[in-house]
Design a protein around this nucleic acid. Structure first.
Lengths: 182, 182, 182, 182
DNA sequence: GATGAATGAGGGTTCATTCAT
DNA sequence: GATGAATGAACCCTCATTCAT
């Protein structure tokens, strides 16, 4: 059994993602983590504080899972297509819960600027990653926009349909870009 | 001064959209609407009930504003581009609060199937509208995905940058489609 | 059985005075008053809010008891001496708990300016009352200072000794003032 | 940097006096004193234990400051008047925080007899000191009562007005006593 | 002699909802 | 048709203290 701090974070990893931030109370967290309330506040200054650590950990987890999932891709195109497949994979695994970052973004008031900042930061990192693989800004943002939209709409419709469609679209985009560069 | 029911709905229109669903308490609603608590529950079975009516009214409002905004468009392309301009217009007007439907989707637990259903329904209507203007499924969904993504990412980054970029992308998509159909 | 609001105030009258403000929790108040926690907050915005009402009610009670106690005094001197006897009477009745106003003054941080203001206000009213009976500022403040000091030191030493001594002092003061005016 | 025990006491000297006893948590003390929690409990059996040491140290400090302030007084009268000036001096220095002994007396429940005892003891020592300078019990207690009242009311009204008035009163008292003894 | 981890009990406050009138 | 009173459950957070190391 890991140390309390780990247990709290592990519990938050499950609950915040599955139930949302506001729908998960401190009481449920400490009960599931088998930790006293005062212990919780010894390790985290506030629930918002835990949220920030959660966001960091969730991002690290998500990225590592993604990297792993697309690791055997040999071309850039394959890499992108596998990334969209990864969304399908995660939807299955996590029952279409969508993106924790966007969910929490919708939950919290604008006044919580620190949380907003962290969310934005992580999303920006993802967006930049697209641009690393495709130097053309317009194309990388184009695919990034589709990617975000796929996460969102598959959560909304509880269906992978638009992800599949996006794969076709992305293929077209990449082929077109090659053709134009000739 | 309109009847109580109207006042409640009008108040919800402001508060739910600006503060979010969970962050808006019944007490604030009835106070702002100048209505007694019992009166509230006479008109609405529950807060969720009010939420559904809110979603309906919000959709009607949003669509009518959109229609109005793009009414003088003369071509399909112009219509689409103006739709993206509408997002910029709304971001300015509503301080990048994003989409009430998606925000509430993120806030509520999956168990509230009725709310999920209403949200999905309205979003599906929007998606279908894109398909009415462009018969090609792939293209209309492509633009729809960009559209949703623009709402989302402009809320996230508090910037219209990606909306502007999307307009360029959409122009390309439409021109390409014309070229291919020739 | 009176209405909840009354029960809460009556309970606060006992507990705040006997245990102090910070040593009396909301939980004890609502339990003793047999009222639910939410009911409490329906009637009082906060604990501090209740405190203000308590201070008002306590002052009214204390003054009325005082008036009653000294009602049969026929001269100004007798009135003052009986006022000091009233302190002895209250010490006996309330087990040397001293003055709620001064006790709470000592308990709360300076930031709570509204509470400080109310306390000051009531004390000023008392001080002014002394000046109504004795027009000479210096003498009335002199006796007022002794009066406050008697409340305080009798609480401190749990003894009425200094009150008795003060009665002698006050007699001297008043006689001296008469002599000088001759 | 002094030893931990000293640092804790020094910190308590500041915090207990300025914020009050109950409003100062152990956590703030150990943080400000840069001491571990277990270290704290190694040196002090409990918070109440620290409080007693604080009261002792505070008394020693206060008396020494007072002695120093009135050291150049040449007559008994001058000594007393300077003592009242000392109150003004301290009010300025400590922002009308009043008397730590009386403040804590108001904060703690009657059950804490040891704390009450210590407070009473120190105050009795002060009262006795007045009687050393003026052999007449009635007069020395009279001035003592005014002295305590001045501390209290200047804290209450956040003003030195009544201290100034008391100086006039004290002068009268001493002159009268001389006249009578002639 | 010194420490970080862990705690039970309680702090004040807010929630959506129901009831008698 | 409208109301103010009342509620149980849950909210996030802090308290002084003890323990194994």
């Amino acid at each position: 059994m890991p140390r309390p701090r780990e247990r709290i974070l592990d519990t938050a990893m499950i609950l915040f993602h599955q139930q949302g931030y506001n729908n998960t109370g401190i009481n449920q967290i400490i009960e599931d983590a088998a930790v006293s309330k005062a212990s919780f506040y010894q390790h985290f200054r506030s629930k918002d504080d835990l949220c920030i650590e959660f966001l960091d950990k969730r991002y690290a987890y998500w990225v590592s899972e993604l990297q792993n999932f697309i690791s055997d891709a040999e071309t850039v195109e394959e890499k992108f297509l596998k990334s969209f497949d990864f969304l399908i994979h995660m939807n299955k695994k996590e029952n279409f819960r969508g993106c924790s970052f966007l969910n929490i973004l919708s939950e919290i008031p604008v006044e919580k600027t620190d949380l907003h900042h962290v969310i934005r930061q992580h999303k920006k990192t993802l967006r930049d990653a697209f641009n690393t693989d495709i130097k053309d800004d317009l194309i990388s943002d184009h695919i990034y926009l589709l990617f975000e939209s796929c996460i969102l709409t598959s959560q909304l419709y509880r269906s992978n349909e638009l992800i599949e469609k996006s794969k076709t679209i992305v293929k077209d985009i990449l082929h077109d870009s090659l053709r134009k560069n000739e």
